[in-house]
Amino acid sequence: MVNVLIDGLKERISNAIKINQSIGIILPASNYPDLVQALFERINSTPEEAWVYVTVTKPCDNILSQFEFLKDSKNIKFVDCISRAAGINKANDNCIFVESPTMLEKIGLEIINIFKEVDENVKKYLVIDSLTNLIIYNDPDIVTEFFYHIINRTRTKNIHTISLAIEEEELDKYLTRLIYLNDKILKVRDSFI
């Protein structure tokens, strides 16, 4: 049953990102584990692509121990914005640490720096996990400005962007404003999969 869910998600994401430069995925918190699993499986199945995964949700180390197959992946680099703030100091070759999720400019710099080292012909993807958490740590206005910059910069560099927005009632109006900066929006509902 779970596999069906995840396969369905994988297919929806793959199809959407094929034809859109940027997609926003709105999902209830209960679907978050399935969604990231689908994403990581998708990433792992396409070693010829280059992915940057910005995590504001879980420390990179936790992600790697949960999805062990990512440990040897050469096509994914993490920008971990929460480990340092949480006092976790484990170093990792596949991960760049930003001291705090408030250091948005630095997050932006690191994303672009990683992609600079990727060959021009390689397909490039960026995941932001998640807009919700960026808003929790920052003023919503500055996140909008940040996201607007990111969407524009990645577009000029032909980088596809997938941003996650975990539904949160109090943040709904900010999330809506942000998510609509994307070319395409996917709403994940149990019933849709």
Binding site: I96, K106, L109, E145
Partner: peptide, 20 residues
């Protein structure tokens, strides 16, 4: 500007986000 200091690139600058 916003300034970053990193092991990899030393000092780097980026436009400072201004909102509040």
């Amino acid at each position: 500007s916003a300034m970053s200091i990193s092991t990899k690139n030393g000092v780097e600058l980026a436009p400072l986000l201004k909102s509040r």
